[in-house]
Amino acid sequence: MIRAEHVTYSYRGNVQTVRDLSFHIQKGEFVAILGENGAGKTTTVKLIDGLLCPTSGQMLVNGLDTAKTRVSERAKQVGFLFQNPDRQICQSTVREEIAFGLRAVWGKKETDKIEERTDELLRLFSFRGDEEPFSLSRGQRQQVALASTLAVKPAVLILDEPTTGLDYRECTRIMEFIRSLNETEGTTVVMVCHDMEVVLDYARRALVMAGGQLLADGPVHEIFRDAALMEKASLLPPQIIQISGQLGGEFASADDAETLSDMIARAAERRQA
């Protein structure tokens, strides 16, 4: 689905923000990109979306070279949810907002199709179509932005820190929605996220970046358990991984509170007996 081959990107020919990236993401994967600020995460997802083009190397999405693909063609394939929904929202009603993206990609003539799809999304997210986006809360605006991103049914969904500024409930709602999309529609998800708990709960694979380079690529659980790697990338693993890791032995394999507490309870019983 997404294939990066020795991708390098430098800003105005000066600083290399990402260097020699190579990875391959299959259809239907849920991938998180981890690393501290300035590691090159956002640049990488922008390269996948074609908002930036590699200075050298090649980025292929669905077999198409992003550097040679037209904007509207690419927008059919890849949806991008930004950290700040207010940069995306530009229409005065929620209905118009969703239709706007559809028109840009499908063309203005497809009125019926656009109408139908807009209604579908309004129902799906239980929005009122005539609501003004800017009178909604940040979490709701993020959902409006998500709805209009998903409207064109992109095969790849990119999320750049989708949970910033959201409370726990809003964050869960957005992430659960994305999970179901990934599971039922097979949408490929690539997510930049600072909240390691969210990464552990939702992503299955992680790319770790530092200083513009790819440090590691593997299943989320394995990545989080690699203490040396976490240290090198200045990351702190999720709490349960820290706890199970420190307990060591048989417990080291547990990665959620439920499993770990079960294991400990059983061990405690054995000890008493």
């Binding site: 708990e197 509170a257 405690a268 019983e269």
Partner: peptide, 16 residues
């Protein structure tokens, strides 16, 4: 939200 450590300790007390 709660830290996972707190959820863990409450589960632990429940289960043991």
């Amino acid at each position: 939200n709660c830290p996972r450590s707190a959820r863990f300790s409450s589960l632990l007390s429940e289960k043991t």
